[in-house]
Nucleic acid binder design. Structure first.
Lengths: 116, 116
DNA sequence: CTGGATCCGCTATGATACTG
DNA sequence: CAGTATCATAGCGGATCCAG
């Protein structure tokens, strides 16, 4: 077992503790998670809209990544019982609270990776 | 092809543009990248030290993730020609400029994911 | 239109043994 | 100590077909 982010807590507490940075890592792990959140940060979007916005993502993967984000309570899925069907995705409050981090990442990238 | 993060740029410019958020995603993609950077954010660390700090990571993977971070200019590798060998890893200026984002992620996690 | 369900291949990850 | 080399494995990502 390892530590590092917790100091010298007693073993019992260590067992019950999870590295916060790793928790975040677990949520944004997935090739498209971050860019999906990014695209939802400004507005609600429909399934097809997301697919158009994301380069080369397949339906299956988009569905799966959205479901995982839903499970993590980052994204809300609203189904309208119409014909043809209409489904809108938006950020939950938790997802919205993550927006500043997304913006930081975008700005950091533009500032530091521009020339690469 | 898709867009979204760029407005209505002419096609030629679109081709040459890369989504900044995706660039960041590419760098931190990898199961251990974020936690490695996190562990290097406070101090320089030796190879074995990192392995002790990270739960269940194997040598091969640790080596590879460090190499990739090196290629992305996030981590600096300093080799001391001694016996026994000694290698120290630290953040480059680019890596250091990423620390605020790591901190944000940690704080966001502690504040919002605590109860899960 | 919005996806669910399958199948499949690749890549990242992981375990182990060996080396300078 | 700090890797390298090799092999095994799992899961993700992707394509395709099917359904309400």
């Amino acid at each position: 077992m390892a530590r590092s982010w917790f100091g010298d807590l007693p073993e019992e507490q260590i067992e019950a503790t999870v590295c916060p940075v790793t928790q975040t890592q677990d949520i944004i792990a997935g090739k498209w998670k971050i860019i999906i959140l990014w695209n939802l940060s400004t507005q609600t979007r429909r399934f097809n809209e997301l697919q158009r916005l994301l380069p080369n993502i397949s339906k299956g993967i988009l569905t799966r990544q959205l479901r995982e984000l839903e499970e993590d309570n980052m994204v809300h899925r609203e189904v309208y019982k119409e014909v043809p069907p209409k489904v809108e995705y938006s950020l939950t409050p938790l997802g919205q609270s993550f927006i500043p981090i997304l913006q930081s990442m975008g700005e950091w990238s533009k500032k530091n990776l521009g020339a690469k």
